[in-house]
Design a protein around this nucleic acid. Sequence first.
DNA 1: TCTGAAATGAGTGAACA
DNA 2: TGTTCACTCATTTCAGA
Lengths: 145, 145
Amino acid sequence: MEDLDAQILKLLAADGRMSFTDLGKATGLSTSAVHQRVKRLEQRGVIKGYGASIDYDQVGKPLTAFISIRPIDPSQPDDSPERLRDITEIESCWSVAGDESYILKVRVATPTDLEDLLARVRAAANVSTRTTIVLSTPYEHRPTS
Amino acid sequence: MEDLDAQILKLLAADGRMSFTDLGKATGLSTSAVHQRVKRLEQRGVIKGYGASIDYDQVGKPLTAFISIRPIDPSQPDDSPERLRDITEIESCWSVAGDESYILKVRVATPTDLEDLLARVRAAANVSTRTTIVLSTPYEHRPTS
DNA sequence: TCTGAAATGAGTGAACA
DNA sequence: TGTTCACTCATTTCAGA
């Protein structure tokens, strides 16, 4: 990882739609040079993708929660992420060390929807759940230098 | 929230660099029409921004963790998010219901860096911490339909 | 790996339905 | 809100250093 690539990554993490022209101005490179570097970073998978961050309060999904799950039968192989992949309310899934095996981040419209979602998670992965409701999000997705 | 706006948001959440031309083809609108809608969604704050998602394993920050914090002195007003804002290793901060008051998502290079970070978090916000290490990330940042 | 030039394609704004 | 058109600017490729 070079210094120039690190600069480009930070700029793109902060503004994923920044143009190659502007990236060039910010880094002192020509448009073509940044273009080549960005394409290479994409091919190597250093840049995994681009996204828009949405205000879910404004689109009818104001309720965010973390669901920690733990297998009911620890003797079985744990393929929870695959079993849960089709549940579209799950935005992220992290495998973690500690009392629980995975943490899910989910987004729903209402408490009733959350109750329904929990039932589907338990049934699909044969797990017990512990849910933490998000009250507000002071900040999120900050570029970690 | 209209159907067309919802489509656009989903497409942009999945690919934040998709061109207005392609968005138009996908939604059946003209380039200008999507352009107008996207600008309006940005102005209203429905689209909060755009970002690149980085593979931090490849840029020397392979260690991700969740830190749950709780005030040591509950009689004091809790402005932890402001006190912690300048710690750049913190990628996200959620206010939550439950035993703890906030959950932080952090990214560092090594366990020693995590130890150091925990000390800084405790000192800056006068909190106790509970840390959960992320072992792997099966998926993350999925567009929640 | 970079630059600069040239071609293609996208972003942007105005006039209008 | 939508479309089309005309203009500007960005993206992409390539030759050369």
